[in-house]
Write a protein that binds this DNA or RNA. Structure first.
Lengths: 252, 252
DNA sequence: ATCTACTGCGTATCACATACGCTATATTGC
DNA sequence: GCAATATAGCGTATGTGATACGCAGTAGAT
């Protein structure tokens, strides 16, 4: 009775929210969802998401692959659970921001930090809007700094989405590089720069060639600095809108 | 001799650039890379990337799966080729933009249009910086509007990347929704809104609950309008920087 | 004590990518 | 021309992974 839902949640979501009724009868369960998820995360952390197979996970737990299906409906559900667990709760410090800009900035850096800790997260195919508890906690944390702005309510999630897509995208790139055969992070860009310089026809790629000659791809400033740069651009853009919303009679 | 490269390109990249030497001896080839790629794209367009298997593609061409490997080294290489072909060349009209903002805006909409035509493109795991001919053509097209700005050369690719990540991310969401069991595009948001309203504890998710009550997720304004909105934010942000770069002695 | 809804889990199936090797064919050196 | 050789198409086999199915043992309900 207690566990009855009003909306019929897709089974996997019910699991994340712990709404799955644990039946009373039968033998005791030897495993737990949390245990399985933790194991899967450990594997993903050390060997990548691709190494997470039902057999591998089960093996580490000393059981057979099929046992896991007593706890998890499909592998995708396991991924969803892994995602939620990897995100964790947003740090409490985020609440302390003095203004929207520093609030969003802190949120962005915190999000990035979490992704960096579990780069495989960006490999999990997203399926629809955020629904798991921690996803929603992070979303809530992002919306907080925007609460006292003049923005329309409908605009806020769009801005968060914008921010989030850049963060994920940057982490994706890092994840790619981490996999690639390349030796050094800087060396990749050197190679790339060289590749471009050699393969590009100036007539067909004028702007690109100009950028290459301008050293656009040569000197890698480091991921942190580049992230900071793009983040500031987004925040600037949001700032422009927030200012505009302060004068409701404005032009634009 | 003509085909010799200075940098040893990864085999798959050599293929995209047509640098693969066609040996002279032996029987004539019954297929062509272009044919294979076209067939794969047709399948992906109608049934999604997941339906693209070597067997399926070969079958449509009236041959066996293994025959394809005479033209393509791995399935990943096929994906790369598909990606490049799906992108195509950026429309010539992009060159005509009167200023950076309209130029980038046109580029963004054009990019989005291409992705929408082949939503599976966003499912292909990205691997490293852009290297295929059409990827680089699009990159070049994005850099053109920025050529006569005061931006540093190293900043330009970062801005393009920023823009591109949002575009891809938006297309990803659309791709997700296209797959999901949901009936109507609008209906999904209604469901989502309802889901949030029912599951969220106002104490734990104050900002999110407020946004939900403010109708933030209820009225879907349509993908185009939302895209336009976020795009303007990014362009605003870029605009702020461009203005700042005009006064080299500026603060900030 | 018995019933029954469970549990762990072995076995089997199915889908794919792809290695291997065989036979037929087109060029090339003589 | 003719043989030598480097291909071409492709059947078969292998390996990996998710997951359906079913059985035998177990613990709470009656």
């Amino acid at each position: 009775m207690e566990n009855s839902q009003k909306v019929s949640l897709p089974a996997s979501i019910a699991t994340v929210w712990g709404r799955r009724a644990r039946p009373a009868k039968g033998p005791k369960q030897g495993l737990s969802v949390a245990q399985i998820v933790d194991t899967a995360i450990t594997i993903a952390d050390t060997e990548g998401l691709g190494a997470v197979t039902m057999a591998r996970v089960a093996n580490r737990l000393g059981t057979g692959a099929m046992s896991l299906y007593r706890y998890v409906a499909t592998k995708d559900e396991l991924f969803t659970l892994m995602l939620d667990a990897a995100l964790g709760q947003p740090p409490a410090s985020l609440t302390a921001a003095p203004d929207w800009r520093r609030g969003l900035s802190a949120w962005a850096w915190a999000t990035r930090a979490v992704l960096y800790q579990h780069l495989w997260v960006v490999r999990i195919p997203v399926s629809g809007p955020p629904t798991t508890p921690n996803q929603l906690r992070w979303l809530d944390a992002a919306l907080r700094p925007l609460q006292n702005t003049a923005l329309h309510d409908a605009e806020k999630p769009l801005l968060v989405l914008l921010l989030n897509s850049y963060i994920r995208s940057e982490a994706s790139l890092v994840a790619d590089l981490a996999v690639s055969t390349a030796p050094e992070p800087t060396e990749i860009m050197t190679h790339y720069n060289q590749f471009l310089a050699e393969i590009l026809d100036p007539h067909e790629f004028p702007a690109l060639v100009a950028a290459v000659h301008g050293g656009a791809f040569a000197n890698d400033e480091g991921a942190d600095r580049e992230f900071a740069f793009s983040l500031e651009r987004i925040l600037d853009g949001i700032g422009v809108l927030i200012e505009a919303r302060k004068q409701p009679v404005a032009e634009r």
